[in-house]
Amino acid sequence: MTRGAVRGRTARPWLVTGLVVAAVVGVLAGTAATAQPPVPGLVGPGPMIRYGVPVARVLLDLAALVTVGLSLLPKLLGFDRPAHTEPVLAVARPAAVVTSAVWVVAALAALVLQTAELHPGEPVTVGDVAGYVRRIGAGEGLVIVAACALAYLVVAVLAVRWGETVPAELRIVVAMFAVLPLPVTGHAANTGVNLHDLSMISMELHVMAAVAWTGGLAAAVTLLATNRGLLADVLPRFSRLATIALATVAVTGVFNGWFELYLTPGIHWYTALATTGYGRLVLVKVACLVTLAALGAIIRYRLLPRIVRHERTALAGWAATELAVMGLAFGIAVVLTRTPVIS
């Protein structure tokens, strides 16, 4: 049997379709739901910009999480059975080159679109972008992300060339480092408040846990969906990671959502949950999380014991569903970082 045949049998890239579609649908629906009426006398950004910015940001997130997931894969697979794991990693390494390239492009596109958002009705010039990067934290953050993703791309190319002698830890750290800058430039924090630092750390933990959880699942199921031998090894390891990630995402997410509502003057956070677009999106995300916990529990307690016994299961369907719900949550997350609580 050739290696090509093995690749063809185990890789199921379509399993992330639901993730991507749900993320884009989530971000478009959320943007439309929180759209503000045009202000008389002000030239507003056109629909290309209004929808282009969130779409670029969610594609950036997806490229980031798949890249992180592909970086985690060697750790999940372990190194004790190279004859079985090497064909899978030989697919994962070039895939990471492609996803990190998408990551770089999405960061640059987001940078230009966000600059354009501040200059409605004018063509964006190089000077505009330079000014945006110099003066706005979000611009600086996107440049750092693009640079880190580019650094990852170089490491990924080295890994394609030299295989697993390029340490998996290096890839994980570079990928995770590229995830870090953007959350602190969202509206994670306020000055003059003691909870300021805590909310920034909480936001970073939230993003890292969500990215590792979703990315790990996406990489594991797309590359191993039908490889029962490896799934029996990988899924128990992933399950532990997922449990920690679920708990982290829940605690930090509830805290961040509450904190943002609590800080906004002129409203009570408990009524704002129902009366503001922001609050309603927070509730939708909580619903996503509950659904994810239920789906995760089904995989963990119903499928996992059979997977460990190398039995055939409907894992692909359940995992694809879970990924779609995760995609929706990522789409809404992008809207939440951009939406003012009250307008």
């Binding site: 390239a101 640059l108 200059h119 010039t125 000077g127 505009d128 972008v129």
Partner: peptide, 22 residues
């Protein structure tokens, strides 16, 4: 408008970067 760096449009640069990366 910030910077005011001579009004060079930015899209060609982005397209160039994408082509180079690809």
């Amino acid at each position: 408008s910030a910077g005011g760096g001579g009004g060079t449009p930015v899209w060609p640069w982005i397209v160039g970067a994408v082509v180079l990366l690809a």
